[in-house]
Amino acid sequence: MKKTWGRWLFGLFGLALFGCSTAENEMAGGNLQAVNHTLHAINWFSVNGYRAHGGGGSSCCIILPTKWRPGLKANIEWEVDPDPFAESPPLGTNEFREFMEVHKANYRHYSAVVVIPEWVGTDSCGLSVHFLTCNKIKVTTSCWGYGSPNNPIKEPKQVKEPAVCPK
C-alpha cells in the first residue's frame, strides 16, 4: 500500500511540473560575455549568480527565458582592479606575494541591478554585460557583436574615468 501511495504522489508531482512547463516558462542557456569600456581590470563578474571572468570574451553559461517578459532584471556583481598595470616584483618570490597582498586590498566590489532589454521571439544570444566608467552597467541580448552598427551599445572602449562621476 505504501508503494502505491508513493507512486501516486510521485505521479501527481510529475503532472504538476508538466503543467508548469509552458512556453512562458521555458528557459535556455546562452553565453555570458563581458565588454570592458574602462581602463580598469574587471577581475570577475556574476549575473544572477552565474559567475564568469571579466575583461572580455565570453564564458558559458547563463540561463534566460526563451521569451522576454516585462520586469526581467539582472543582478550584477563585479570586482575591479583599479591599477591592473602596477609594476610588481618577479612572480613566485616572497616580495611578489607581499606585493599582491597589498595590491588586492585595493580591489573594489560593486553591484547593480539592471533591466534586461526586450528581444523579439527567441532571438536572444545570451547576455553581454558592458562595464562603463563611473561603475555603470549596460546589458544587451543582441546577436550583433560590439562594434557592429546593429549593436545597441555604442559607448567607446578604453575610456578614462572622469574626475567626478555624475549622480
Rank of each mutant, 00 (worst) to 15 (best):
L127A: 01
E95Y: 09
E118A: 13
G6A: 14
I42G: 05
G30E: 00
E87Y: 04
R69Q: 12
W44I: 02
W8S: 12
C134W: 06
H103Q: 04
A52I: 03
P89W: 00
A112M: 05
H130M: 03
N25M: 02
V102Q: 11
K136W: 03
F85G: 00
Y146F: 13
T38Q: 06
W68S: 04
K3T: 13
P90Y: 03
E79V: 10
W68M: 03
A28R: 04
E26W: 11
T141N: 09
E24Q: 14
C60P: 00
R51D: 02
V113Q: 14
H40K: 12
N94M: 00
L132R: 03
C60Y: 09
I116F: 02
A23K: 03
R51C: 01
L132H: 08
P149K: 09
L127M: 04
F18S: 07
K160I: 06
D83H: 03
V139W: 02
F96T: 02
W119E: 06
L91Q: 09
F96N: 11
P152M: 00
P166T: 00
L17S: 08
V129Y: 07
F13E: 10
L32F: 08
E95F: 04
N75F: 01
F18L: 12
E155V: 06
G56S: 10
S128N: 05
L9T: 10
V159Q: 09
L12Y: 15
T4Q: 12
W78T: 07
K73Y: 02
F85K: 10
I116E: 05
K104G: 04
E101W: 01
R69W: 11
A41Q: 02
D81C: 00
G29C: 06
G11Q: 07
W144R: 00
A112K: 15
H103V: 05
H53T: 13
T133P: 15
R69A: 15
V139T: 07
G11A: 13
T22S: 10
K157V: 15
V114Y: 07
S128L: 02
R108M: 13
N43F: 03
T133C: 08
G11W: 03
E98D: 09
E77L: 07
G19V: 02
K154P: 15
V115N: 15
E101Q: 13
H53G: 06
N31K: 08
F96W: 14
S88N: 08
H37L: 04
Y107C: 09
R7W: 05
L39I: 09
G30N: 08
C134H: 13
F45A: 07
P162G: 05
G11R: 10
Y146V: 06
F99D: 00
